[in-house]
């Protein structure tokens, strides 16, 4: 029921929900064991070419560099393609690290969206208050970090409008979402302010079902790969 929207300069976690289920052992060094595949080269050179620490450092360094490249490529006003209603993927895939019947049950009556961080107005939002916000419908392609994609029919309020409404510091770096099922995620501010980033209340003109993150979810389907549908619970 409780969820918070915070806007600190939080480091973006590399752990991605969609991948969490593939994760064999979170405490292990995650990037490098597969480096054993370079075994052939190791044999050829007769030395251990992949030193774990230095390889990991290089990967982190390049990843940070890639963040900057992506920020530079990002055009705030460039819109993702939209599709006719007939092209909406039915059924829209359910994809989480838990099964569909394990999706959190939320009581809409007592639901509150908590807002925290670099915002002027930290009042919590009830569901009727959220539903009263101006809404628009967008049919866009959701592209998952795993590779699959599906066209969704989203109705909700623009996250940018909401952030302005609560007096968020729009120069902050990230918007941080804490979700009921424990999966939390950040998006960078330019993505948060994109006109196709919605706080979604309806899918296909019906109130968002539990499996898609009732009562509210945030698809950044428009501009982001990996794009995430973190339910706001």
């Amino acid at each position: 029921m409780k969820k918070r929207l915070i806007i600190p300069g939080v480091d973006q976690k590399l752990l991605i929900k969609d991948a969490a289920k593939l994760l064999p052992n979170p405490s292990r060094r995650l990037f490098l064991r597969g480096a054993a595949s370079l075994g052939a080269l190791t044999i050829l050179t007769g030395c251990d070419i992949v030193d774990e620490d230095s390889a990991e450092n290089v990967l982190r360094y390049v990843s940070t560099f890639n963040d900057r490249v992506q920020a530079a490529i990002f055009q705030p006003q460039k819109l993702a393609p939209v599709y006719p209603e007939s092209m909406v993927t039915k059924p829209f895939p359910f994809n989480a690290y838990y099964s569909e019947d394990e999706a959190p049950e939320i009581d809409g009556e007592s639901y509150k969206l908590e807002v925290a961080g670099l915002v002027d107005n930290k009042k919590s939002w009830t569901l009727p208050e959220l539903y009263a916000l101006p809404q628009e419908r967008q049919i866009t392609r959701h592209i998952c970090v795993e590779g699959w994609s599906a066209i969704g029919d989203w109705t909700g309020t623009r996250l940018s409008d909401f952030l302005k409404r609560v007096g968020a510091d729009l120069t902050a770096k990230y918007v941080y979402f804490i979700c009921k099922e424990g999966y939390s995620n950040t998006i960078d501010m330019p993505t948060a302010l994109h006109p196709q980033t919605l706080m979604v209340f309806k899918f296909g003109n019906e109130i968002l079902p539990r499996r898609y993150g009732y009562p509210a979810c945030r698809p950044s389907s428009a501009t982001r790969t990996p794009s995430t549908l973190s339910p706001w619970r």
């Binding site: 064999p24 990037f31 597969g34 595949s37 390049v62 590779g147």
Partner: peptide, 29 residues
């Protein structure tokens, strides 16, 4: 392997990165 296009996946022993997140780091580096 995270979202196979065909009816097979690649054996883990011949892949790099251990899991999707690690593989993406390698791929984009």
């Amino acid at each position: 392997n995270a979202s196979p296009l065909f009816d097979f996946t690649f054996p883990r022993g011949i892949t790099l990165g251990e899991w999707l997140g690690g593989a993406l780091l390698w791929h984009f580096a």
